[in-house]
């Protein structure tokens, strides 16, 4: 049940980010200066942490989505749904362990 709640919460969060993200990207049609000014605000440390949270939400939603598909279409899916949730959690940890150091280095380290 909690995986269902988390799937909804992450889905709604991602959707609202998506609306904003398409609008900010549309600024490339206005001028290079306008786009660079707005995208520059994505490159601050606070937004960098927000991006980490966004990627975490996407990674969970993606892996749990595959689990939902397997529960629905794989004959043994319902039987193994709990085991698959732990696999989702494991894959989430591994993916974030690969993503976070590199992203946080880009945000807080060298860069410009």
């Amino acid at each position: 049940m909690w995986s269902w709640v988390a799937h909804r919460v992450t889905g709604v969060l991602i959707f609202f980010f998506l609306l904003v993200h398409i609008l900010d990207t549309a600024l490339v049609r206005v001028s290079p200066e306008a786009y660079n000014a707005v995208i520059g605000t994505y490159q601050t440390p606070i937004m960098g942490l927000g991006e980490a949270g966004l990627v975490a939400a996407i990674v969970f939603h993606a892996f749990n989505g595959v689990r939902v598909i397997l529960v629905d279409f794989w004959a043994k899916g319902p039987k193994y749904q709990k085991a698959m949730l732990w696999i989702v959690v494991g894959l989430f940890v591994v993916t974030m362990a690969g993503f976070l150091p590199r992203h946080l280095m880009n945000v807080f380290g060298g860069g410009h």
Binding site: P32, Y35, Y42, H103, N106
Partner: peptide, 21 residues
Amino acid sequence: HLFVNLMVGEGVHAIDFAFVG
């Protein structure tokens, strides 16, 4: 999308008009 824009090169710091263009 996430890999190419956030992981390759300088990640989020490399994104600007020239990158999108």
